[in-house]
Each structure stands twice: as structure tokens, then as C-alpha cells.
Amino acid sequence: MIPLTTLPSTVSIREVGPRDGLQNEDRILTTEQKILLINALNNSGLRQIEVGSFVNPRYVPQMADTAEVFARIERRPDVIYSAIAPNLRGAQRAIEARADSVQVFLSASESHNQSNVRMSINESLAAAADIALALKEASIEFEAVLSVVFGCPFENDVPIERVVTMTERLLALGASQITLGDTTGMAHPRLVQAVVRALRERFPQAPLRLHPHSARGAGLANVLAALEVGIDRIDASIGGIGGCPFAPGAPGNICTEDTVHMLHEMGIDTGLDIPKLVSCAKLIESLLGHEVPGQVIKGGICGHIPGGKMRPWNETEILAQPVSRTV
């Protein structure tokens, strides 16, 4: 068994709100509103932003304008703008949109894979091989996302060995990293550590990322559990919005500003500016027209964190300030 590691000194946060966050909202934002959000996120210190997904708009109408969003956002050279693609056609559209990285998503359960992408796991793995080749030819990074790793709404427990086997096949295709998705928030700290340890024992050098969701209050506890076994890459969504439209009861993602606040309190650097993130959360709350689940937006920033003044937010002032990127 791999022993617990010391906590990492830095953690990389990928912002998934513009995709995973918005895809489960009833209100479909306009292209201009999405661009406004992403441009604001640009100024928070983020180096990875998930812009959207190239999926069938009949099933996910919230993502129908992803290509236009890619074409019109303000791109920064030190930021990776990624997209999700379930099949070769989606990957080709991502290539045409000049995505910096493409995440191919598969489910670790047959039932969820059929619900999510209408393919079997083996069919999705075959599609992933075609996508990997197309992305290699286009010199675009190929990433793999495994959904429902910690539990499926249709099948309940997911065998860890199946996750290991799928990871092996995806790494063999050239995946630059494997993202472990807690799609329906069924993970708990011991299970997170068991899955990560199993993968570390088989693939000690493989880059792993955790994609937590916030059901039942375990989201940040699962982040800490992952940090303890060496994970230093986390997905989060501004304001805590999100969920999967193809998984009954799927909760929102963990909240970006809450996660960063916790990490900074623990002395772990993310390179992100919390006041700017809170302003982005205020922005998405106003765009969606409802309160977001995040807690820092309600309770404020602890006073001893840089920028942690307990005062009303001046979004225009905060978003205009430059960020020192340290991660």
C-alpha cells in the first residue's frame, strides 16, 4: 500500500464552470454572456479554463454556441482553453475551434455511458482511439475523463479494477492525464484514496486529476483526501454551479472560490486571486438570476488571507486589477 504523502505545496485548479457548470442550468446564457464570464475568469489567475463542449445541441442546448465562444473570447498565451468531445466529430469541431486541449469523456459504468454518450464502453474506447489520432495529427493535447468513477446512479458501486483497466487503455492511447469524475457526488474520502492508490500502484507516473461534485457535503473533504495521496490537480466550478444532465440527482461541482479559500488557508498556493473569483461568482449569479451554492460569496474571505477584507465587493475595481501568477 502506498503511504500517505505530505500535502502538496501548490495545486492546479481547472475552472469548469463555463462548461460543466452551465450545461445543467435551465437558463441558457447568450454567447455574449459566456464571453463576459470567461474574460472575467481570465483575470483571476486561472491557467486552465474549460470553455465548452462539442456535443449534439439537441441533448445539451446550453453548449450549442461553443465554437463561437472559442472564436470570440480573449485568449491569453499562458491559459489553456479546453473543450469536451465525446466522439470524432466533436473532436474535429474542437480542432477547428483551435481548442488547446480536448477532453474525451467516458463513463466507468455501461449504464451511464449509454445515458451520457449513447455508446457502450468498448465503443467509446474505440472512438477515443480515433480521437487521439486526430488530435495528435493536429498537435492538440488529448486528455481523458472518466465519469462516475466513485459510483453510478444506475449501477451503484463501480469496480475499481474497471477504472484501472480503462485507465490503462486510455494511457496506451496517449492520454496526457486521467481525470477521475465523481459525477453524482457518491465519493467519500476513503473511496477517493482507495481509487487513487490503486491507480498509483499500477501507473505511478500517470498524471491524475480529481473532478469532485458536492453532494452530501463531502466535496472538500474528498479534495483533502486526494491531496493526502498525491493529487495536485483539481477541477472546480465558479459559484459551485453544475451537474450532469444525464445522471439523475447529479449535484453541482465543488465551488472554485470555496476550494481556493480552503487551500490558501492551509498554506497551499493556487496562484489564484480570491477576491476576483468572488467577483466572478457574483457575475455568474447575476447572469443566471439565482443564488449560487458557494459559501465564500456569502460569508466573505477570512481577514488574514491577502485581499480578505470583509467589505462589499466592487466587482469593477477587483476585476481590473492584475494578478501575479505564481503556479
Rank of each mutant, 00 (worst) to 15 (best):
T5L: 13
P8M: 09
I13L: 15
I13K: 01
R19I: 07
D20R: 06
G21W: 05
E25Q: 14
T30G: 13
E32M: 05
L36D: 14
Q48S: 13
N56A: 10
R58T: 08
M63T: 05
A64D: 07
T66Q: 05
F70R: 06
V79R: 02
Y81F: 14
A85R: 04
L88G: 01
R89Y: 06
R93F: 04
S101I: 09
V104Q: 02
A108H: 02
Q114H: 07
S115T: 05
S115I: 01
N116F: 07
R118S: 13
L135H: 01
L135P: 00
S139Q: 12
E141H: 03
V145C: 10
L146N: 03
V149G: 00
F150N: 04
P153D: 06
N156K: 14
N156D: 11
N156P: 00
I160R: 09
E168K: 14
E168V: 05
L180Q: 08
G181N: 04
G185D: 13
V192K: 00
V196Y: 01
E201G: 03
E201K: 03
F203E: 07
H213Q: 07
H213A: 06
A215S: 11
R216S: 06
G217F: 05
V229K: 01
G230N: 07
G230S: 12
R233M: 14
G240P: 06
I241W: 05
G249Y: 04
P251R: 10
P251C: 13
C255F: 02
T256H: 10
T256N: 12
L277T: 04
G289R: 02
E291V: 15
G303K: 04
H304A: 11
G307H: 10
R311C: 06
E315W: 04
E317M: 09
Q321C: 09
V323D: 01
